[in-house]
């Protein structure tokens, strides 16, 4: 792995961690949703700094050019994040639907109560 790629990768993973941390500090993302980002950044950081590990990993996978293994892992992390986000969105959609239904039901109940009040 050339020094330039190593440097770029280092900047990238540190930068990601820094941005995510900043977003938490500003309360723009919640801690529980940041974990997967930090996890990914740390994995990339370790493989960037610990060159031997990356080489071993690449050999194990049968990848001749070690930085390619790094990209593969980065892509995998990206996929994991998207999947995680899809799960979160699905849950929110379901909760959102239930809330809308409850609001409709409550509004109706409230209207009945108000009508009863007026007629008394």
């Amino acid at each position: 792995m050339t020094l330039r790629i190593q440097f770029l990768s280092l900047i990238f993973s540190l930068g990601t961690a820094a941005i995510v941390f900043e977003l938490i500090r500003k309360r723009r993302i919640m801690e529980k949703y940041s974990l997967i980002w930090f996890g990914s950044a740390i994995v990339l950081l370790i493989l960037t700094v610990w060159k031997d590990l990356l080489e071993k990993f690449a050999t194990f996978l049968g990848i001749y050019y070690a930085p390619s293994a790094l990209f593969t892992i980065a892509a995998f992390c990206g996929m994991a994040m998207l999947l995680h986000i899809t799960v979160v969105i699905s849950r929110l959609t379901e909760q959102n639907k239930t809330l809308a239904q409850e609001i409709g039901l409550l509004r109706h109940k409230l209207q009945l109560l108000e009508q009863n009040d007026q007629s008394v």
């Binding site: 639907k97 809308a100 239904q101 609001i103 409709g104 039901l105 509004r107 109706h108």
Partner: peptide, 18 residues
């Protein structure tokens, strides 16, 4: 008749489930 107004469009399934 009874009328329930959903705050936004949920789609037919969400309406029937209500």
């Amino acid at each position: 008749v009874h009328l329930i107004r959903l705050p936004f469009n949920l789609g037919i399934g969400g309406a029937v489930q209500t």
